[in-house]
Write a protein that binds this DNA or RNA. Structure first.
Lengths: 267, 267
DNA sequence: CGAAATTTTGATCACGTTCAACTTCAGTGG
DNA sequence: CCACTGAAGTTGAACGTGATCAAAATTTCG
């Protein structure tokens, strides 16, 4: 009685953004072609270059095809908060390029190649291709959920939990982007950046990483992180991957109101 | 030489969501009617009721017409992280209702009235009315920026800065929703909730609030917060309201690449 | 191979949590 | 109208955590 919940047609097109949008929305070959035709040029950006700087104007979206980057903000006292790690399929300039001047900065962590499309052109495309618009809505909702988890991390989790949670999330995102093995991955971030991401000092990140090692939950060699005890990590971090989308690609009517409880605790 | 930057037609329709969408996108009367016809019913929800519970399914969006609510998550150890404060014009179930089961909970802070629309119907509407889709994209981008600021608050600002920043942001959002005077507002949150929002303990929120008072930056009477020194608050919190959208409602082509610097510091 | 970036380590100390008690306030029913 | 009740705000003392700073060890990369 195995019921296939979602039968998603993965188009032959292997652009990471297309792959991502197609998780939520059906795109015909013609529509995909429309989208691709919107890309004005493909750029390769060297390591440690600013793609976007807070305070500068930018009128373009940069869709990451390969490579990694960080979105961050510098405070007046020199502190830095990293908002998110940008992976292939992510859009640099979401939300930055929607404001003038940009509200955050983005810097590459390695050589990055991007497809460039002007924001105006992109919004036009969204008007013309409804599936693209709805796909982008799903994209933002996902991003929102990711930011939400980040708030929880920084606001209420212990440093050890934070690191564990971060490693699991990073792995699962890298997995989706096709950049990670089943239980290990190449960490693209220095401990300093992890600190700035999670609101910790670099030395403390180091200590916590070592604690995870000595608890035999992970091991690290070079920049390879390997999960030794995924179960234990999930438990420690209370990791919950995003549940399936409420509406699958192949339409199927939801039937009613509230169902399945799961946990119900109150302060 | 006063140049009016944006001439936005505010339609006679006074639904707070419509007002909000029209900040970014032109909606004809017919399109507004379409949207309104999607609302299945109007509900009034009593104070301290759960609109959404983590772990339960929900297939509806609830658009807040009046009243306040909190979006939050409970952790296993009983800690709570508040993700955001929901004001009129906000959509409960963004992002929660897009996942099954819901990833966060939402509770009312007073009597709240909402317009209900099923997610499926709403996404259909987005397909049919391109301006609605693009408007919702802007909506999410705004929300994303708000979450981003929240991450910065919790991750890298001192408790005092956090509180100051929070008060300013709350005021400016209430202002847009038409629920605040020029330099004072009725705070809809207990200190405990503020603590859970900003990652602080309730007693510490209390102390910081008192410090702001003794610095003559604010005053509080009952639940009225009054800014005594907006300048000073902005400075302390390094508050920066969201810059104008990169593309105004009335189309006007942006001309090029990067302009105006503003600050450029490096670690 | 040399220089720079990153990781590691240790010692000190300020900050913010925790917990508990007490006060004030708001809402309700007698 | 007042007494009663529970919620919210206020205060203090003690403690533990994680920041900070600096220096050394190691890795990475030009």
């Amino acid at each position: 009685m195995a019921v296939p919940l979602r039968l998603v047609e993965i188009p032959a097109d292997n652009h990471p953004l297309v792959t991502r949008l197609c998780r939520h929305v059906l795109l015909s070959d013609a529509e995909i072609a429309r989208l691709r035709s919107g890309f004005e040029r493909r750029l390769t950006i060297k390591n440690k270059r600013d793609v976007l700087l807070e305070g500068y104007k930018s009128h373009s979206l940069h869709v990451v095809v390969s490579g990694f980057a960080v979105r961050y903000k510098l405070l007046a006292d020199g502190k830095r908060q990293v908002l998110s790690i940008i992976l292939p399929g992510d859009i640099i300039g979401m939300p930055c390029a929607f404001f003038q001047p940009s509200i955050y900065s983005v810097t590459t962590l390695c050589e990055v190649t991007v497809d460039v499309v002007s924001l105006a052109r992109f919004l036009e495309l969204c008007r013309e291709v409804p599936s693209l618009a709805v796909g982008m809505l799903w994209y933002s909702v996902h991003e929102l959920a990711t930011y939400g988890d980040h708030i929880i991390d920084v606001g209420r989790r212990s440093p050890l939990e934070r690191i564990a949670h971060f490693l699991l999330e990073m792995h699962s995102r890298l997995r989706l982007a096709g950049c990670a093995a089943e239980s290990s991955f190449e960490m693209p971030l220095s401990q300093e950046i992890i600190g700035d991401l999670l609101g910790l000092s670099a030395p403390h990140v180091n200590r916590m990483l070592h604690e995870l090692k000595s608890e035999r939950l992970i091991s690290i060699f070079r920049r390879q992180v390997t999960f030794k005890d995924v179960e234990g990590l999930w438990l420690l971090a209370q990791f919950e991957p995003l549940p399936s989308p409420a509406i699958a690609t192949i339409p199927s009517a939801g039937n009613g109101q509230m169902d399945r409880p799961r946990s119900s605790r109150l302060a």
